[in-house]
């Protein structure tokens, strides 16, 4: 045993060294990850109860609420509507964003495409623009009185749909997220494509396979793990959409204060001062994110790798 461990740096030195190196990370993790999660859990099972006349700060006390907050969140019409809205939003956004990212990544990987450097950098550029700023820019582009699209269409006598009113605002928000996210996902996929040794598909090309066939039959299956990861990260981000609708709110009449689940959490915690309901709702969102991610992973793995046995 000693012959093995002397090769390892930690064995001869004090055992404290790795722990010293991990110390800042662990302390910060406990304070800003572990403690908040536990605290949210605790709050989500409590409620505030009025004692006596409920006057003054001593008039309220915190009592155990069981699952009451969860039940009221799951039966709250506003919250359920926001969940449905985000579902539609995700169904529009995720396939479009990942489909385009994959298309662009494959085109970048093709030897027959030109102007690659320019396109790659330009498509990735929106990743550097914060969601608030991109919502603001697109918000003005959607605003009929400012937008160049409306201006140009008017000259041809066409009236464009106002994406800031009615249900169409979901499309407007999806477009903002698409703009911000397509480049990042493209780069992730492109990096995986670059890692494939070219001799794998050079042989197929010599046998007469077209570029499209090579992409569909060889490249996409090989980078499947990257595609799955980008999909999971997209699901996680989608369910937490917050900055875009909050920024568009002053420009649109159809964004309520409970438009997305996170906006509902924010309203409960800070407008209604009901941190208990807000905690229960955020636990529900977190569980939904975990469940969806794992469900997706299961389904995809069965589809993608199930045929191997």
């Amino acid at each position: 045993m000693t012959t093995v461990t002397t090769r390892r740096p930690g064995a001869r030195r004090g055992l404290a060294t790795p722990w010293l190196m991990l110390f800042p990370a662990i302390v910060l993790f406990v304070l800003f990850f572990a403690a908040p999660i536990v605290y949210t859990l605790v709050l989500s099972f409590q409620k505030s109860q009025v004692k006596g006349l409920g006057l003054g700060s001593g008039g309220r006390s915190t009592v155990f609420a069981g699952l009451e907050n969860y039940v009221s969140a799951l039966t709250d019409a506003d919250f359920l509507a926001s969940v449905a809205r985000v579902g539609v939003y995700g169904l529009i956004l995720i396939p479009t964003m990942l489909g385009l990212a994959l298309l662009f990544a494959l085109l970048l990987d093709s030897k027959r495409t030109r102007a690659k450097g320019f396109s790659r950098v330009t498509i990735f550029l929106p990743y550097a623009v914060p969601a608030v700023i991109s919502s603001l820019l697109w918000g003005f582009l959607f605003l009929p009185s400012v937008s160049p699209f409306f201006d140009i269409a008017n000259r041809f006598g066409i009236t464009l749909p106002d994406l800031l009113s009615g249900d169409a605002v979901i499309v407007a928000i999806a477009n903002i997220a698409l703009w911000g996210g397509v480049g990042f996902n493209m780069v992730v996929m492109y990096t995986s494509l670059k890692a494939i040794p070219t001799d794998i598909y050079e042989a197929a090309k010599l046998d007469g396979a077209s570029e499209v066939q090579v992409a569909l039959r060889i490249k996409i299956p090989i980078i499947m793990p990257s595609l799955i990861m980008t999909a999971i990260f997209s699901i996680i981000a989608t369910l937490q959409v917050f900055a875009e609708p909050v920024t568009l709110k002053p420009l649109s009449n159809s964004i309520s204060s409970t438009f997305t689940p996170l906006m509902t959490v924010y309203r409960d915690a800070f407008t209604r001062n009901d941190v208990y309901s807000a905690s229960a709702t955020s636990i529900i969102i977190a569980v939904a994110i975990f469940a969806l991610s794992f469900l997706f992973l299961r389904v995809v793995q069965r589809r993608a790798f199930g045929g191997e046995n």
Binding site: F32, F33, L43, A286
Partner: peptide, 19 residues
């Protein structure tokens, strides 16, 4: 530590505020 990657920001921000 790695599990932290999957923790959605929403369940952190509000308790972080109150803590």
């Amino acid at each position: 530590l790695l599990a932290g990657v999957l923790v959605p920001g929403v369940i952190l921000a509000i308790p972080q505020y109150f803590l």
